[in-house]
Simulated scan of single mutants.
Amino acid sequence: MTKFSDIKGFAFDLDGVIADTARFHGQAWHQTADEVGTPWTPELAEGLKGISRMDSLQMILDHGPKTRTYTVDEKEMLAEKKNKNYQALIATLTPNDILPGMADFIQSAVAKGYQLSVASASKNAPMILEHLGLTRYFVGIVDPATLHAGKPDPEIFTRAAEILQLQPSQVIGLEDSAAGIRSINGAGEVSLGIGEQSVLQEATLNFATTVEVSLTAIEQAMTD
């Protein structure tokens, strides 16, 4: 069992953990779903969390009418259109959009000597961190374009630990999706889920909201 004293770094998902850019993803994917005739449901919206752009598009197509088959080029065009819609939305982000408590947690973790990295499926993570004013706190960001597989595969969180030059057992991964929690667990890191425990039941640690996340609270949860 990993002890809090073993932890030297944190690997953050971005959407829904540092900022609520998930709502922008939802808006942009909803537009895509409408375009291809897929009914937009809460279950579909939840299933898209934490997975790559092309995997998300495929899920939308799989849930839609089976009246036609999309070519690779058509899928790429749909994904690019979604991304342009999403980028227009995230361009409006400011530090005020950081989720409650997260700025304090990030700043306090760095002040205490912890190393931080980002393990997000979003290729727009550098742009988002810049708009939020948080870039300087992170050692690095995993480039999802270099990965062989997306979440729930553990590769992204394995790479996040490598960026920090830490062993997986020295890292806590923060996620708000079930796919992300499985990715963290598969990488051999401590998983910290933010959100409904019923959805994130595989998480080692669970906090209902970002405002509850602090070094003190994590240490307490790991010693209970």
Rank of each mutant, 00 (worst) to 15 (best):
K75E: 11
S169N: 12
P168D: 03
L129R: 09
L78V: 03
G180K: 11
F4D: 07
E219Q: 15
T32G: 05
M127T: 11
D143W: 02
A109N: 08
V72N: 06
G101C: 06
E219A: 15
M127I: 09
S120N: 08
M222P: 05
R23K: 15
G64Y: 10
Q167D: 15
R23L: 07
E46K: 12
A145K: 12
L78W: 00
M102V: 07
D20G: 09
G9N: 08
G26T: 12
L166P: 08
F10E: 07
V199D: 09
H63M: 07
A203C: 11
A203S: 14
A187E: 01
D20R: 09
G113N: 10
Q107V: 05
L147K: 05
R68S: 09
G188T: 07
D62L: 08
V110C: 10
M102E: 01
A79R: 03
D62K: 13
F24Q: 11
A208W: 00
Q27L: 12
G47W: 00
Q170L: 01
D224W: 09
T67N: 14
A103R: 15
I60E: 07
G9M: 09
T41F: 11
G188Y: 02
R136N: 14
K49F: 04
A88V: 00
T21L: 01
P65Y: 12
D143K: 01
I194G: 03
M222D: 08
Y137E: 05
A161Q: 10
K75H: 07
I51Y: 08
E80K: 13
D224K: 14
H131P: 00
P168K: 02
A11G: 05
I51G: 04
I141D: 01
T69K: 15
P42D: 12
G37V: 09
G64S: 06
V17Y: 00
S117V: 05
K82E: 09
G133C: 08
G186R: 02
K66P: 02
E43C: 03
A178Y: 00
K84V: 15
T210G: 04
M54H: 12
M222H: 03
P42C: 14
E212C: 04
S183L: 03
A178H: 11
L192A: 14
V199Y: 00
Q87E: 14
S120D: 04
